[in-house]
Write a protein that binds this DNA or RNA. Structure first.
Length: 335
DNA sequence: TTAGGGTTAG
């Protein structure tokens, strides 16, 4: 319960988890109440609320752990081939089938399906199905994979209160969030224009325990959350990651280069381009396209043409984005 | 042992 408390001093969540600091004891019920209870009025939800503060949930977890710790039992249950659902209807049919199946499929199997639904961008559906399978009546207890998917679904829906409720649930269930969990939250905060909080979270990540050290994706996400006009901040973050012994890669550099080009700071972008090459980080088609577009937008056709040639000489072939950028500039009459 | 996170156009 302890590692995250300090972090919440700097992250504001929304009801029903106020006030801080969180004790986490209401987390499980909080998320149900937050997303389900108000609208559904089902008996199951009422029962859930009545159980608040009792050890029933823990008992249930203990029962589930006993079952899943028996390898012979769990192995025979589920063939582990991935689902091949291409649309929501197929996924929905599969979900209904799984609900009727006896013995009931494991949480792993349900998690696979939730992951597919989330990939299809049906985030609300994934959350709704998650709630169904974790209601006490079904007795399935989510694992860290399940929760990561749901944290991401809330983030994608721009419902950060829901995301942080699920983070609290990690602790409630004795699960360890990992760097990916936190990266998802950082992305969500950034999209919600809460870059200060995202930065604060990055600085405190290691307090979450082992496996939560910020990585190149953490910084890449944070840098990508800097909107136009925040290039200095993005570059500061680049330096911050280097100080943290985290080597920037082509994605990190390309993100900043693109942002500089969009702000017409093409010379600065080329400085970073030189910097990355001097560090042995080879630019890719994204890097080249951003710079090429930057030159085209300024109407620097000679330079653009020379740069296009350089790109080809370096074995990078233009793609549809490269040509679209060119066509767009020509149509808009940059000169 | 299943899944989840960062970059380019219009």
């Amino acid at each position: 319960m302890q590692p995250a408390c300090g972090i919440f001093d700097h992250i504001s969540a929304q009801p029903p988890l106020d006030p801080y600091p969180l004790e986490f004891q209401d987390a499980y019920f909080g998320i149900q109440l937050h997303t389900n209870f108000r609208s559904c009025g089902h008996g199951q939800c009422r029962r859930l609320l009545k159980l608040k503060g009792t050890p029933d949930l823990l008992l249930l977890i203990a029962i589930d752990d006993t079952e899943s710790s028996n390898p012979s039992k769990s192995k025979s249950k589920d063939p582990q081939h991935p689902f091949d659902v291409t649309n929501l209807e197929e996924a929905s049919n599969m979900f209904k089938k799984m609900l009727k199946q006896r013995p009931r499929p494991s949480i792993v199997r349900f998690t696979q399906l939730l992951g597919q639904v989330a990939k299809l961008e049906h985030y609300s559906v994934a959350i709704s199905w998650y709630k169904q399978i974790t209601l006490l009546g079904m007795g399935l207890v989510p694992d860290a994979c399940t929760l990561n998917i749901i944290v991401n679904c809330f983030c994608r829906l721009n419902q950060m209160g829901g995301s942080f409720s699920v983070l609290a649930l990690f602790f409630k269930l004795g699960l360890q969030p990992d760097v990916t969990t936190l990266n998802i939250l950082i992305r969500g905060l950034g999209q919600d224009n809460r870059v200060d909080e995202a930065t604060s979270l990055v600085r405190k990540m290691e307090a979450f325990g082992e496996g939560c050290k910020p990585n190149v994706i953490t910084f890449g996400t944070l840098i990508a959350s800097c909107k136009q006009g925040q290039n200095d901040r993005a570059i500061q973050m680049l330096r911050m990651m280097e100080k943290n012994d985290c080597k920037p890669n082509v994605v990190v550099y390309s993100t900043i280069i693109d942002s500089l080009c969009k702000d017409k700071l093409v010379a600065k972008a080329f400085n970073l381009f030189s910097e990355m090459k001097s560090k042995g980080i080879p630019p890719n088609i994204v890097t080249y396209t951003s710079l090429f577009q930057g030159l085209c937008r300024l109407g620097q056709w000679k330079e653009a043409s020379r740069f296009f040639e350089e790109m080809n000489n370096n074995g990078i072939s233009p793609n549809v984005q490269t040509f679209s950028a060119l066509v767009d500039c020509l149509c808009k009459g940059a000169s």
